[in-house]
Computed example of a mutant assay.
Amino acid sequence: MAERYSSFTPGGTGWLLQRVTAAFLVVTLAFHFFLLHFVNHAYEITFAGTQMRMENIGYLITMVLFLWAAAFHGVNGVYNALVNQGLSGTPKRIVLAILSLAGLALVAQGTYVALVMNGMI
């Protein structure tokens, strides 16, 4: 039988954070879809309505945490999938740097937009 290989160390921090962010994403994605696709239909979503929702501190915090969790979960998942496919050495370090910078840029831009929509900036 083939041996199972994973770049995640079972019980390690990366392994745990991948599972915690997955659980958080399931809950917040359900909230997001319910609010923006069932309570408010797509044709009812406006810029002013988004600003109004973002002015609620609970909603703002939830959406910013949603962004951070999604960015970490995605970047960490892509990186570990590539490592599982055999990426190693210098290419592994380069991919890690590129993915980390892209993730940080996404989080920085998304957080900035959220704060602008909230009126804090």
Rank of each mutant, 00 (worst) to 15 (best):
M1K: 09
A2H: 10
E3N: 10
E3M: 08
R4D: 09
R4A: 15
R4I: 15
S6A: 12
P10T: 06
G11E: 04
G11H: 04
T13F: 13
G14M: 10
R19L: 09
T21N: 03
A22Y: 03
A22M: 15
F24N: 03
V26A: 14
V27E: 02
T28K: 00
T28W: 03
T28D: 01
F31V: 12
F31L: 09
H32M: 07
F34L: 12
L35F: 06
L35Q: 13
L35W: 10
L36D: 13
L36G: 10
H37T: 12
F38I: 13
V39D: 06
V39Y: 13
N40K: 14
H41I: 12
H41K: 14
A42C: 03
E44D: 11
E44K: 04
I45V: 14
T46Q: 08
F47M: 13
A48V: 09
G49R: 05
Q51R: 13
Q51D: 02
Q51T: 11
R53F: 10
M54H: 09
I57C: 02
G58I: 00
L60R: 07
T62F: 00
M63Q: 11
V64N: 00
L67V: 14
L67G: 13
W68Y: 09
A70V: 00
A71W: 00
F72N: 07
F72G: 13
G74I: 00
G74Q: 02
V75K: 01
N76Y: 02
G77N: 08
V78R: 01
Y79I: 01
Y79G: 07
Y79S: 10
N80G: 01
A81E: 08
V83R: 14
V83L: 13
V83T: 12
S88Y: 07
S88E: 14
K92W: 07
K92A: 15
R93Y: 06
R93F: 05
I94A: 14
V95E: 10
L96Y: 04
L96I: 01
A97Y: 08
A97H: 04
A97V: 11
I98A: 15
S100T: 14
L101H: 06
A102E: 07
A102M: 15
G103K: 05
G103L: 03
G103E: 01
L104R: 06
A105E: 02
L106H: 04
A108S: 10
A108V: 10
A108E: 01
G110I: 00
G110N: 11
G110S: 07
G110V: 03
T111R: 02
Y112Q: 06
Y112G: 05
Y112H: 08
A114Q: 02
A114S: 15
A114E: 02
L115K: 00
M117F: 07
N118G: 09
M120D: 04
I121G: 10
